Computed example of a mutant assay.
Amino acid sequence: MREKKKTYEEVVKESPVTYELYANMIDDGNRYEISDGVLELMSPSPTTTHQMICYKMLFRLETSCENEFIIVPSPIDVILSNTEVRQPDIVMIHRSRISIISNRGVNGAPDLVVEITSVHSRKRDKVKKRTVYAKYGVPEYWIVDLSNFTLEQYTLDGDRYELIEVYAEDDTISSKTVPCASFSMNEIVQSLPVHPDMLE
């Protein structure tokens, strides 16, 4: 007999919340992550600026990197363990590791994750997710900060991230993990159809 799907209220009471419970929830239109066995409701819908920046970054990465990497935007489940499931804004997986991609999501650590942070998600992205992605062995982590249009580049050193560079304005992003990536934050911002300063 097929198990009845559960609501958010029913699942959140489980301890720990597993991927199986999460995957069999009733779809209520919200997005969730599992943080160390705890179901967390994600921030409100992304802002227009967030979505435009994400799209333009995705376009740049696909243009230069799609021969070497599978590039997937959110929403996509990155299943780091049965009790740790995240939804980064962009994930990149080298084509030599295509076996970690399945219909349900990415099973294990991608080569690169990108989080585009906002007022609502800054602490989660810069503290909690940074710790989690390092723990599960994601080689490189980018945090794009919309408050100043910078890109913080972290690479794995043992089980912790080291801040390698902060890219701003016309600095060209350079990555040993993703050597095909080459753009500046000014190129991204100036390519937007509506400049963020024009939005309320």
Rank of each mutant, 00 (worst) to 15 (best):
residue 34 I to E: 14
residue 135 K to Q: 15
residue 125 D to Q: 08
residue 199 L to M: 09
residue 26 I to V: 15
residue 151 L to E: 10
residue 87 Q to G: 07
residue 160 R to C: 10
residue 150 T to D: 02
residue 24 N to M: 03
residue 23 A to Y: 14
residue 159 D to C: 05
residue 103 N to L: 12
residue 77 D to Q: 11
residue 153 Q to H: 14
residue 38 V to Y: 08
residue 20 E to C: 05
residue 73 P to D: 10
residue 167 Y to G: 03
residue 121 S to D: 13
residue 122 R to D: 12
residue 185 M to C: 07
residue 145 D to W: 11
residue 135 K to H: 13
residue 78 V to C: 09
residue 97 R to S: 07
residue 118 S to E: 10
residue 68 E to I: 01
residue 87 Q to C: 11
residue 138 V to D: 05
residue 26 I to Q: 07
residue 68 E to W: 03
residue 108 G to V: 04
residue 3 E to I: 13
residue 38 V to L: 12
residue 72 V to Q: 06
residue 197 D to M: 05
residue 100 I to F: 05
residue 7 T to I: 03
residue 139 P to M: 08
residue 189 V to E: 04
residue 158 G to N: 14
residue 136 Y to H: 11
residue 26 I to W: 03
residue 186 N to F: 10
residue 90 I to V: 06
residue 50 H to D: 02
residue 45 S to W: 02
residue 26 I to R: 01
residue 94 H to S: 06
residue 69 F to V: 02
residue 1 M to W: 07
residue 51 Q to A: 05
residue 3 E to W: 07
residue 166 V to F: 01
residue 100 I to M: 04
residue 89 D to F: 07
residue 159 D to V: 13
residue 107 N to H: 10
residue 37 G to H: 14
residue 125 D to H: 01
residue 41 L to R: 12
residue 79 I to Y: 09
residue 176 K to F: 04
residue 83 T to M: 05
residue 20 E to W: 10
residue 55 Y to H: 07
residue 138 V to F: 05
residue 134 A to Y: 06
residue 43 S to V: 08
residue 196 P to D: 07
residue 117 T to I: 09
residue 30 N to R: 06
residue 41 L to A: 10
residue 57 M to R: 03
residue 128 K to P: 00
residue 173 I to E: 09
